[in-house]
Simulated scan of single mutants.
Amino acid sequence: MRRLILPLTTFFASPALAESFDRPIPQAQSATAEFWYAMACFALIASMIAVQRLVARR
C-alpha cells in the first residue's frame, strides 16, 4: 500500500490537472443599484450626524 501512495499523490497533484485561473470581469452597475447605493450613503451620513449631536449634548 505504501508503494501506491507516492505515485498516486504525484499523479493527482500534477499541474496538468489544474485549470488556469480566469479573472472575473466586473459587471456594470444598473441605475437601480446606483440609486440604492446613494440612499445608503445618505442614510449613513444622516446617522453619523445624529450620533454626533447626541454625543455632543452629553
Rank of each mutant, 00 (worst) to 15 (best):
A28T: 08
Y37D: 12
F21L: 14
Q29S: 09
W36E: 04
F21C: 10
F21D: 11
L8V: 11
L17N: 06
S30P: 01
P26D: 01
I45C: 13
F42P: 00
S14R: 08
A13S: 08
F42H: 02
S47P: 01
E34S: 15
V55F: 10
P7D: 00
P7N: 00
M1N: 13
Q29F: 09
P24A: 03
A50V: 08
F12H: 04
L8D: 00
E19F: 09
A38S: 05
A50Q: 06
V51S: 07
L44C: 14
A31P: 06
L44M: 13
M1C: 09
W36D: 07
P7S: 00
L4S: 02
S14N: 05
Q27C: 02
M48A: 14
A38P: 00
Y37T: 14
R2Y: 04
P26E: 06
A33F: 05
F35E: 10
L44P: 00
M48H: 09
M1D: 08
S30Y: 02
E34V: 10
A31R: 15
P15Q: 05
P26G: 07
F42C: 12
L4A: 02
L54A: 13
F35S: 15
P24K: 01
L4Y: 10
Q52M: 14
R53S: 13
P26K: 09
V51P: 00
M48R: 14
S20D: 14
A46E: 08
R53Q: 11
W36C: 04
A43C: 07
Q27P: 00
L17K: 11
R23P: 02
L44D: 09
F35C: 11
A16Q: 07
P24I: 02
A16H: 11
D22K: 10
E19S: 11
D22S: 15
A16P: 00
S20C: 07
S14I: 01
L54T: 06
A16Y: 02
L54V: 05
T10M: 08
I49V: 15
L54Q: 15
P15C: 04
S47F: 14
T10I: 06
P15T: 03
A38D: 01
M1K: 02
L4K: 03
I49P: 00
A18P: 00
T32H: 13
R53E: 14
L6S: 03
P7T: 00
Q27A: 08
W36H: 14
L6C: 06
F35Y: 14
A18Q: 13
L4E: 03
T9D: 03
L44Y: 09
A43I: 03
F42Y: 01
P24S: 01
F12N: 06
F42G: 06
T9K: 05
I25M: 08
E19R: 15
C41R: 09
P26W: 06
M48K: 12
S30N: 04
A50K: 09
A46I: 05
V55W: 15
E34L: 09
R53T: 05
R57I: 03
W36T: 12
P7Q: 00
A31E: 08
Q27K: 08
A38C: 02
T10K: 10
T10Y: 10
A33W: 10
V55E: 06
V55Q: 11
S30M: 07
F12Y: 11
F42L: 11
Q27M: 13
Q27N: 02
I49K: 10
L6Q: 10
T10F: 08
C41K: 12
A50W: 08
A31Q: 10
C41D: 12
R58W: 04
A18V: 07
D22V: 15
A18L: 15
L6A: 14
